[in-house]
Design a protein around this nucleic acid. Structure first.
Lengths: 228, 228
DNA sequence: TAAAAAAGTTGATCTATAACAATGTTGCAT
DNA sequence: ATGCAACATTGTTATAGATCAACTTTTTTA
C-alpha cells in the first residue's frame, strides 16, 4: 500500500451513490481525503480489523470475500469504480466483516469514517439511504446463501456468469478473475469451475477464449441457474 | 391467523430493544397496535410479500427461514419473545426476504410500519440503532454462509447446538425444533442430523432424551464447530 | 529474454452426504 | 380409546463434487 497523496478532494468521494453532493449538504469546506493505490492482489482491507476510513474505488476492480476454513475463501461480490467499502460500520459494527483485495491495480479515495459519521450524524436522508443499501445487501447475501447451498455446480457457475454479465452490463466481457476465483465466487473447486465452463462451451451456451467470455444463450443460462 | 384484539398498547411494542420507550420519545399518545395469535406451524410472514407491520414476538418461539429449492428450506435463526420482525423494511426493501413461522403457539404485537416510519423519521438515535442491528445481521449471515458451505455435518450440528445453547442461555435445554428443522438450521438432511446427534451422545459430548438436550462437553463442541 | 511463478486443463480416484427404504415412536384429534 | 399424522431412527445405496496428479500455457519478474 503506497500513499500517493493527501489532498483536498471534493468530487470523488461524493460521486458515490450513497453520499450526498457537497451542494446538497450545503457545505463549503472541502473534504480531506487520502488517495491510495493498490497493486494487483494487494489486500485493501482485512476481515476483523478496525474500519478507520470509508473507501471508494476510483479505478480498478476488487473482490470482496470472507475467509473460509482452510484457505477456501468465498467471494461475495466484485467491486467496480464508485463502489464504497466500510459504510456498514458508520453506525454499525466497528470492524470489517470481510476482506477486500485488488483484482488489478486499484486507485482509491479514502475519507476518515469519523468525518462521515459527524458529517451525516443528523442527516436522516443519508441514514435512510444507508438502511436501504443494507436491506439490499442482506437480501443479496440471503440469495447467495440459498444458491451456494442448494444449487449444483452448473447452476452455480451459470449464476456467476449472469452476475458478471450484469456487473459489466454486457453479454461479452473479459474476466477480471481467475478460474480459481470463479470457483470461489461459486463456492466450488477450481477444477470444476473449469470443467463447467468447458461443458457450457461445448453445448454452445457460451463462447470462451482465455479470459474472454461471450454468453451466447442467456435464456438457457438463466434456466440452468434457476433450476439449480 | 386469528385477530384477537385491536387495542391501544403502550408497553409491549416498546419493550423491544430497538425501539425507544414512550418516555424517551416524549410522546403522549398511545400506539395503536394489533395483537395476533398464531398456532404452531402457522406462517407469520411470507417471503416476497409486502411488509405492512412491524411484528414483535410477545410469546412463543418462531423460526425465520428462507425458501430453498425443492422444499429444502434454510432456517436462519430462532426468534424469542421481544424479537422483532420486519424492521429491515423501515427504510429498506418493502418486502420480506424471509419467512417466519410459529414453532409453537405464538402471540404477537403488531404496529403499522408506516407509523414506525413517521414516528422515527427524524430520530437518528433510532436510525443508528437500526444500522447497528443491520450490521450484526449482516455479519451473522456471512458467518452462516461460511459454516454452511465449508463445515461438514459434525461441525454444522455442533454449531447449531451451541447456537441454541446461547439462545436459551443454558447448557441444558428443550429443543423447540424437530430433527428435520435441526437439519434445516444446519443445512443438512434430517437423517444426518439424527445420526450426528446419536454420535455425539455415544461420544459423551451431549446427553439426549427425546427433545431434551444437555451439552456435556461444550469445549469439545466448540472445537468441532471451529475446525468444521 | 530466460527462469520462475501463477494460471489453466483433463483424467482418475475417493468420500461425504443426500436419497431411499423400512420401521418404530409419539402426540393429537375425534 | 383408537387411528392418523407428524416425528424419529437405522441401515443401505448412489452420486456429486472434492481431491490428487500430471501436464500445458500464460504471465510475471529479475
Amino acid at each position: 500500500m503506497r500513499l500517493i497523496n493527501k489532498i483536498d478532494c471534493e468530487s470523488c468521494p461524493l460521486k458515490c451513490d450513497i453520499f450526498l453532493t457537497a451542494k446538497e449538504m450545503n457545505i463549503q469546506s472541502k473534504l480531506e481525503t487520502i488517495h491510495t493505490s493498490y497493486k494487483k492482489r494487494e489486500v485493501i482491507c482485512r476481515q476483523n480489523t478496525f474500519v478507520s476510513h470509508a473507501i471508494i474505488i476510483v479505478e480498478g476492480n476488487a473482490k470482496m470475500y470472507i475467509d473460509g476454513i482452510y484457505n477456501r475463501n468465498i467471494i461475495l461480490n466484485i467491486l467496480l469504480p464508485s463502489n464504497y467499502i466500510g459504510l456498514l460500520s458508520v453506525f454499525g459494527s466497528p470492524n470489517y466483516n470481510y476482506n477486500v483485495a485488488a483484482l488489478n491495480d486499484c486507485h482509491t479515495c479514502q475519507v476518515d469514517i469519523e468525518i462521515i459519521r459527524t458529517l451525516y450524524y443528523g442527516n436522516h436522508n443519508f441514514l435512510m439511504k444507508l438502511n436501504h443499501a443494507f436491506g439490499i445487501t442482506v437480501s443479496t447475501i440471503m440469495q447467495k446463501l440459498i444458491s451456494l447451498n442448494q444449487k449444483q455446480i452448473r447452476g452455480k457457475v451459470a449464476e456467476s456468469l449472469l452476475y458478471l454479465s450484469q456487473l459489466y452490463d454486457a453479454s461479452r466481457f473479459v474476466l477480471t478473475i481467475t478460474r480459481k476465483e470463479l470457483g470461489e465466487l461459486s463456492a466450488i473447486s477450481e477444477e470444476n469451475a473449469v470443467r463447467v465452463l468447458t461443458e457450457f462451451k461445448n453445448e454452445n451456451i457460451i463462447d470462451m477464449k482465455g479470459k474472454e467470455i461471450y454468453l451466447r444463450n442467456i435464456k438457457l443460462l438463466k434456466k440452468i441457474s434457476e433450476i439449480g
